[in-house]
Every structure is written in structure tokens, then in C-alpha cells.
Design a binder for these strands. Sequence first.
DNA 1: TTGCGTGCAAAGGTTTTGCATGGCA
DNA 2: TGCCATGCAAAACCTTTGCACGCAA
Lengths: 145, 145
Amino acid sequence: MTRKRPETYRTRQGEDILDYLRSAAGRHVTIGGMVRYFAGRDGNIGQSTIYRHLERLAAEGTIRKYVLGDGKSACYQYVDSKAVCREHFHLICDRCGTLIHVDCDLLEEIQAHLLLEHKFRIDLLKTVLYGTCDACLSAGTEAGR
Amino acid sequence: MTRKRPETYRTRQGEDILDYLRSAAGRHVTIGGMVRYFAGRDGNIGQSTIYRHLERLAAEGTIRKYVLGDGKSACYQYVDSKAVCREHFHLICDRCGTLIHVDCDLLEEIQAHLLLEHKFRIDLLKTVLYGTCDACLSAGTEAGR
DNA sequence: TTGCGTGCAAAGGTTTTGCATGGCA
DNA sequence: TGCCATGCAAAACCTTTGCACGCAA
């Protein structure tokens, strides 16, 4: 009421991090990768700064946080069109880690079905389906571990 | 195939761990909780033993490992019927943590569809769908997100 | 007796936190 | 100038690993 107080400051580090995430849109990035990326270079960014930014951005919905099956590597991905990504499933190949967006009518059916028949409202932002992607299916026919 | 050589030994620790998991069936337990549970008491069990057992049991399919949304807590839950659990989806309510087994024809369709149309072979042992369960939906508010 | 299982502790890895300084508004 | 943001390092966690001894079969 008194005076406008900025809740967040715009900083070079924040911009750099967002730039990096945007440039990697479509791919997923790990926090460790970003720490390494920003470590040695000119505009060095400390890891705590990166952690703090990613946490904030994920909370805002600007980026999406994925936890891979093993629970070890948290991945983030820039979400350009939040609305769209709310409406489809995400697949992750547990061999190569590729993130696949699947937009498909059948999958919408699932949501409806789960809600109606099983009284469960699925959260597509959190849900990731694990399995093996096309490339890895062809490539590692016998590589199953 | 002679069944002479035992691949695993039956030990007190292994039994205790399995007992604990069975007694907690229906709820999810964290590995940290188990370490603490077995730490001080009589039949003390070292944490590496617990880790090793849970890893094995999860690989066998006797228990299921899943990671909650925040990616911090790996949870395990005893699974009674392995055969069945390979063939259906699992839902986890991100509010109360309840694990729900869903066996449904529509879901089989999905597997087939993903494989045929999207060339993705889903792994039902690893996949968990996140969302909100009936009870929490009724209980109600939109506290999530 | 054989060799897997166990326990302890150390090692590895990831994420969080404390605190003094830097920099945006 | 007021305060949030930053960086560094330490702390806090979580999980894995090495190794010698115990114990099931």
C-alpha cells in the first residue's frame, strides 16, 4: 500500500538460466548439467543460485520438473505452452532418457475413464510413463538388462 | 536343471525385512524409515543390508519402488500378487500417498496403442500415474498445485 | 566347507543452508 | 538506500561400495 516493492529482482544470472532453458526447450536438462555448464565459463553461476532458480521456476510452472524412475536424476524442461503440456502424456525411455510428448485422443479417454470409473483424477503434469522408445527397441533388441 | 545351488540364503534379516514390508502392505514405507526402524532394536539391521534387500525385492517384483512427486522420497510397497501387478497400472494419490491398483481392459488397449502407434513399450512395473484419489477429491479443496 | 549375507564405515553424489557481499530497483 | 540475489563452502542427506567376518546350506 505504501510503495511498490519488487518481489523479485531481474538479474543477469536469472536471465542466463532462463535463456539456457529456452534454448534447450524440447529436451530435458539435468540440474547437474546446468551446474557444470555454468561453472567454468565467463558468467559463472554458483550451484545454489541454479538450484534456487529452478525451484522457483518449477513452482511458477515456467519449467517442468521430472523425476526419472531411479529417483536419482531430476530433470527440468522449459514449458513454452503450458496449456498444451497439461493435456498430454509424457513418456520417458528408461534406456536413453528421451522425453516424448504424446498427444492422442485415446489418452484423453484414459483421463475420462479414470475419473469416471475409478474416481481418480490424473495429474498430467506429474505423471510420466516409463518404458522403451522406438530407437532403443530397435537398437538394443537384446540389451535388456 | 538341478536345483542344488541356492542363489540366495534365507537369513533372519531378510525375513524381518519381508515381515515388516508385509505388515505395512497397503501403506508406503520409505527406506529411511526402515533404516531407523531396524537401527536401535534387538535384531539390528545395517542400512546397507536394507538397501540391498529392497533393491533385490524390487527387482524381483515382490515390492514396488516409486518416487513421490518431489523426487526426494523413494518409497516401497509390498505387492501381493506379482503376476497381476505386471498387468495393470498403478495410481498414486499425491495427497495421501495411497497406492491404487487398476486392472481394466481400456488400459490394455493403451499398451497396445502405445506400442503400435507410438512405438513405445510401456513398462508397467515402473510406471505410476499420479493424481488425486477419490477420498482426497471428496475431502476436497484444491490445495494441490 | 563354500561363498553369500551382514555390518560398519567410508566414499560418492545430490540438494540445502549459513553468511558475507554484490547488485537491482 | 533497502533488500533480494549471489557465491562459496559447509552441512545435511541419500545411496553405494569395500572389506572382513558370520552364517546358511
